[in-house]
Amino acid sequence: MKKHAEATVKRHAHVWTWPIAGYLFLGGLGAGMVIVASVGDLFFGLGSFFIPCAGCSLVALGLGSLLLVFELGRPLQFWRVFSRERAVLTFGAWMVVCLMVLDAVYLGFWFDFVPWSGLFWLRSAVAGACLLLGCGVMLYTGIELSSMKARVFWNTPALPILFALSGLLVGCAGDYLVLCVWPYSAEFAVAAAGPEGGLEPVGGPGSAGGLGSAGGLGSAGSLAAVQSILVVCMGALSVVTLISVLIYVLMMYTSSTAAARKAAARWLKGAFAWAFWGGLVFIGLVIPLLLLAFGSGILHAGAALCVIIGGIFLRFLVVYCDDMRDLPGEALYKKRLPQGDEAFLKADW
């Protein structure tokens, strides 16, 4: 009896827990990284620098998918998630898988031995598809939560926008860190710039406008220039995300629904206040802004790291804020439910 009680009474107050928060973060990170990389490749001819980011995006999406499978009650049956055409989760699962495949194909342009590494038209097509699917994955994580009518803190169209902004922000930060730590060789940097190089801007060897062309940002010293563009993007996105987060929480705090007000109060001055003000706002947005504005070099890398920590806090805060509207008497009823540590459950019958 004791063993049975311990096995069955494990009450979770939340519908989803840390694996889903991790999945949402890694999905946003992977999608954001590949979006920034694709934009850099398609519109600025900087694909040579960003292609390793596609590999990191692939790893992030893969880890996120593993977390999602880990959360399932029957992990080995995960393939069933692809079997229904109309559910948001099914759409999302297909998009994540397709993006992972495209990430792998895109990464292939980095290696000379891959048959398609020299096909520039294919690279631009893959980058374009990555851009579209990345946007889809980034938005879907927010849409999945906001489609839950029962959950007052999620059920708003503002949530996908907030997740998209945060996804782009952590994507920029992730790409920045990859550019910082990736061992680009001097030969590669030069090769990336010149018309004879193995990795050209999308326009091909003759394209003049790309930043990756000779004389543009694709010169040996261009890595710093690319990083400075990312720093500007991170700064701008941090400001917009900070404003959006504050508006979102204040919107909930002034909502007509009591449960939404209660949930927002938890963020502003309750149990989640330390994570919201300390983790998300201060570490995740304010400190990065200060470091980006007044720092340089290693401090910018520190800012990117802080942004990523803030992105993790945002997903955890949202996932654990799954409040529902209570019926009269429901709060009292929930309080009386067994938690699993009651004496009668622990007794050895």
Binding site: E71, L72, M324
Partner: peptide, 24 residues
């Protein structure tokens, strides 16, 4: 059923539950 939890999150009436022993 793979117990992904999507239906539990979607139900406004708290009418769905995880059976942890059977994974459904």
């Amino acid at each position: 059923c793979i117990t992904c939890g999507a239906c539990i999150a979607a139900c406004p009436y708290n009418a769905r539950h995880r059976d942890r022993q059977r994974g459904v």
